[in-house]
């Protein structure tokens, strides 16, 4: 797939926020320009997205009660209650609430 741009939501992950903080510090110390910071974050979006797609083979399954679902602006949201999550290594985790936000990996206009 040739995605022209990548989603920016991994920036909100721990590694993403740490990177953003580090870039802020570098800009604050005038060691880099904001444009370079943006370029770094754009690379981060691309690399994170590509690696999650290509390198991560883990899967998990879950079972619970579907409480809410919606599809708005090409984004699916599911809220599941009383969920049992099973990982690849047969470990299980029980959680009261599980929220899935799923965006189209192919953006609008792509096929």
């Amino acid at each position: 797939m040739n995605a022209p741009t990548y989603y920016e939501f991994y920036r909100r992950s721990t590694i993403g926020t740490s990177l953003t903080d580090a870039l802020d510090a570098l800009i604050g110390e005038q060691r880099i320009q904001p444009q370079l910071a943006m370029k770094v974050l754009a690379n981060f979006d691309r690399v994170t997205s590509d690696n999650l797609r290509d390198s991560v083979k883990s899967k998990l399954t879950f079972k619970g009660h579907l409480h809410t679902y919606r599809f708005c602006d090409d984004v699916w949201t599911f809220v599941i209650k009383d969920v049992n999550i099973k990982f690849d290594d047969n470990e299980t985790v029980n959680v009261d609430k599980f929220k899935i936000v799923a965006c189209n990996s192919k953006k609008a206009g792509e096929v």
Partner: peptide, 8 residues
Amino acid sequence: VNGLINYN
């Protein structure tokens, strides 16, 4: 205030 930009 901090002289930074919005990256989004």
